[in-house]
Simulated scan of single mutants.
Amino acid sequence: MIRLQNLKKDYIVKGHKTPALRGIDLSIEKGEIFGIIGHSGAGKSTLIRCINLLERPTAGSVIVDGVDLTKLDEGKLQEQRRHIGMIFQHFNLLSSATVGENVAFPLKLAKRPKAEIDKKVKEMLALVGLEQHRDKYPAQLSGGQKQRVGIARALASDPKVLLCDEATSALDPQTTNSILALLLDINRKLGLTIVLITHEMHVIRSICDRVGVIDGGHIVEMGNVLDVFLKPQHPTTQEFVEQVADSSELRAAVAHEKASGERTILRVTFLGEQTYQPILFQTMQETGTVFSILQGTISRMKDTPYGQLVIELGGDAQQNRKAVDTLRQRGLEVEVI
């Protein structure tokens, strides 16, 4: 659906060239939710704005649904942009227009018939749960409701792609979760390809299928969210995983145990139905190994339940090795820390 090839973007700051994107290669499949995570200044906002050419790349190609946008004149580019919706961190609503008028705005620009506009506005407001707010103004809405209007407006033109530029950053955690649930529902109902940027790993973990980590204008790590989250390779990725993994507490616990003598400490990862099965208890019982839990969590990554336990084994060396081997034979991911 989306292919970025050797994408580069330079800015001129005080007469000097400042690279923002340094040769991005990226493919996003039709119907997936792809997340791009990075710190401020890493290039993520520039990257997403290059996808619809709100920022024109210095070099490289942006191919959306088979069309290279960088080769289009302004008229044809505007036509292609109707297939790419976008929502923003600060909503970008027309303050003097009602909710219904905001949703209708792109359709009026496209000179659609009034009856078609009215029908589409009603349909979009029902999709985002704002049917009763059609005649209100943005100032009368909460932050979450404003973002729902932004989503309805972005979807009014029946786009194939929805770009989300820090769409939940201005919202409280509860409202963020409701907006993420709405985006996931829209993705499933409409088969819409969604690209979102964020600096919050919670957002990526909640709804994304794949993720790219951007740092210094480069994609430094990319893959399925489960793989990237559970086995982060790059230091930047590891920082983001710590947002939701309590890694600082884990390091303190491990340091404490190591300081008290020679220890065997494991990180055991459970995926899918394994998460709810007593595999660890059964293994330790069968091998006669004493263990204690230093840290543990059970959560979900989009539709997949997962768990991670950090445990200390209290058996002798032979018992501990047998316990580790048995856990691995039973399909668990086991890392000796």
Results as ranks from 00 to 15, higher is better:
residue 47 L to Y: 05
residue 99 V to Q: 09
residue 65 D to H: 07
residue 129 G to Y: 11
residue 153 R to I: 12
residue 18 T to S: 05
residue 44 K to G: 01
residue 134 R to C: 15
residue 13 V to L: 12
residue 89 Q to S: 11
residue 31 G to A: 09
residue 14 K to C: 02
residue 148 R to V: 12
residue 40 S to E: 02
residue 135 D to E: 15
residue 88 F to R: 06
residue 35 G to R: 03
residue 28 I to M: 07
residue 129 G to D: 02
residue 20 A to R: 01
residue 30 K to E: 15
residue 101 E to Y: 01
residue 26 L to H: 07
residue 101 E to W: 01
residue 145 Q to C: 14
residue 29 E to I: 00
residue 105 F to E: 00
residue 23 G to T: 05
residue 24 I to N: 03
residue 76 K to F: 05
residue 129 G to Q: 04
residue 132 Q to A: 15
residue 145 Q to G: 14
residue 147 Q to G: 06
residue 133 H to S: 15
residue 106 P to W: 01
residue 72 L to I: 02
residue 78 Q to H: 02
residue 56 R to N: 05
residue 38 G to A: 07
residue 24 I to G: 06
residue 32 E to I: 01
residue 129 G to P: 01
residue 103 V to M: 09
residue 96 S to D: 08
residue 12 I to M: 08
residue 146 K to H: 12
residue 57 P to R: 00
residue 140 Q to G: 08
residue 153 R to C: 07
residue 86 M to T: 11
residue 68 D to H: 03
residue 148 R to G: 13
residue 86 M to Q: 08
residue 57 P to H: 00
residue 25 D to N: 15
residue 153 R to W: 15
residue 54 L to D: 04
residue 32 E to L: 08
residue 109 L to M: 15
residue 21 L to E: 09
residue 58 T to D: 00
residue 147 Q to D: 14
residue 145 Q to D: 10
residue 20 A to F: 09
residue 83 H to Y: 10
residue 104 A to D: 11
residue 50 C to K: 01
residue 9 K to H: 11
residue 146 K to R: 15
residue 86 M to C: 10
residue 22 R to T: 06
residue 109 L to T: 08
residue 30 K to Q: 15
residue 92 N to T: 11
residue 11 Y to D: 05
residue 150 G to D: 14
residue 133 H to G: 06
residue 137 Y to K: 10
residue 37 I to N: 06
residue 107 L to P: 00
residue 90 H to V: 04
residue 137 Y to C: 02
residue 119 K to W: 11
residue 54 L to E: 05
residue 68 D to R: 01
residue 138 P to L: 04
residue 47 L to P: 00
residue 78 Q to T: 02
residue 132 Q to T: 13
residue 154 A to D: 11
residue 121 V to Q: 03
residue 46 T to M: 03
residue 50 C to M: 03
residue 142 S to N: 13
residue 69 L to Y: 14
residue 93 L to S: 11
residue 143 G to C: 13
residue 44 K to M: 05
residue 100 G to M: 10
residue 84 I to M: 12
residue 109 L to Y: 09
residue 144 G to S: 10
residue 104 A to Q: 07
residue 17 K to M: 03
residue 62 V to Q: 05
residue 25 D to W: 06
residue 113 P to T: 01
residue 133 H to F: 15
residue 49 R to G: 08
residue 111 K to P: 06
residue 30 K to G: 12
residue 138 P to F: 04
residue 80 Q to I: 05
residue 52 N to P: 14
residue 107 L to G: 00
residue 40 S to M: 06
residue 141 L to T: 15
residue 85 G to Y: 08
residue 58 T to L: 03
residue 42 A to G: 11
residue 14 K to E: 14
residue 28 I to F: 07
residue 49 R to Y: 09
residue 70 T to P: 08
residue 115 A to S: 14
residue 91 F to H: 10
residue 84 I to G: 09
residue 10 D to E: 05
residue 132 Q to S: 15
residue 149 V to K: 08
residue 65 D to W: 06
residue 67 V to I: 13
residue 103 V to N: 08
residue 115 A to P: 12
residue 130 L to T: 03
residue 130 L to D: 11
residue 41 G to F: 12
residue 33 I to M: 12
residue 26 L to A: 04
residue 152 A to S: 11
residue 67 V to G: 06
residue 150 G to Y: 14
residue 13 V to C: 01
residue 128 V to K: 09
residue 134 R to D: 14
residue 53 L to M: 11
residue 54 L to T: 00
residue 64 V to Y: 03
residue 12 I to R: 10
residue 103 V to W: 13
residue 117 I to Y: 00
